[in-house]
């Protein structure tokens, strides 16, 4: 019988060894806030209820905010935060908004009156223009936070979804099919040459 005991003991030990996770060092709040901030999408939209990503990060580090309040970060972002903080994943809190495809702002330049209100609203300096001059968005810098949309007195800013290009296209997750052979024959219907 002692062989069984040896085995059980060995298995238990190994199980512990394999699952061994280095105990999280207690990090100080500011450092933790930095680490959290590094994972946030930096859209600076304020949907989380804080005036930007860093304040939200600080709030999480202090334990004042939950990890599921950032819609631009979405599910992936929550996963990352959960991993960093060693917490459980929870779905996005829809009170703060829903995850949507990335969009960039677009100014209808014919209508723009050059009031500079949008420039003042843009948290990431993605709008150029001067008083009474036409304004325009530098699309590659725009985070899609939508903060410039409400201030515009003539409603000339719209949000356009970013189209996928050949360079940013991603391969799909391979469909996972375990089916009887008969049904897969029809699965490869392709454009005929």
């Amino acid at each position: 019988m002692n062989a069984i005991l040896i085995m059980a003991l060995g298995a238990a030990l190994l199980g512990v060894a394999l699952r061994y996770v280095p105990v999280k060092r207690k990090v100080d709040e500011a450092v933790l806030a930095e680490q959290i901030d590094a994972l946030l999408p930096q859209t600076q939209c304020g949907q989380c209820g804080y005036p930007g990503c860093k304040p939200y990060a600080t709030a999480i580090a202090k334990g004042e905010a939950d990890i599921n309040q950032c819609p631009p970060g979405g599910t992936d972002g929550i996963h990352k935060l959960a991993e960093l903080l060693g917490r459980k994943f929870k779905p996005l809190n829809t009170e703060h908004g829903v995850e949507k495809p990335k969009a960039v702002a677009f100014i209808d330049e014919a209508v723009c009156i050059g009031c500079t209100l949008c420039i003042q609203a843009c948290p990431v300096d993605a709008i150029v223009g001067a008083a009474k001059q036409m304004h325009t968005i530098i699309a590659p810098l725009c985070t899609g936070c939508e903060l410039c949309v409400p201030p515009c007195p003539v409603d000339c800013i719209s949000m356009l979804p970013v189209a996928v290009s050949v360079d940013t296209w991603k391969w799909q997750y391979p469909v996972f099919e375990i089916k009887p052979a008969a049904t897969t024959a029809t699965a490869t219907k392709q454009q005929s040459a």
């Binding site: 985070t143 991603k170 391969w171």
Partner: peptide
Amino acid sequence: FAKSEILARQRDQEFADAARERY
């Protein structure tokens, strides 16, 4: 799939870092 996903994340990360700097 994994490679393009990783590359996309790297792009996003670079974008976010640049945005943070500007902010």
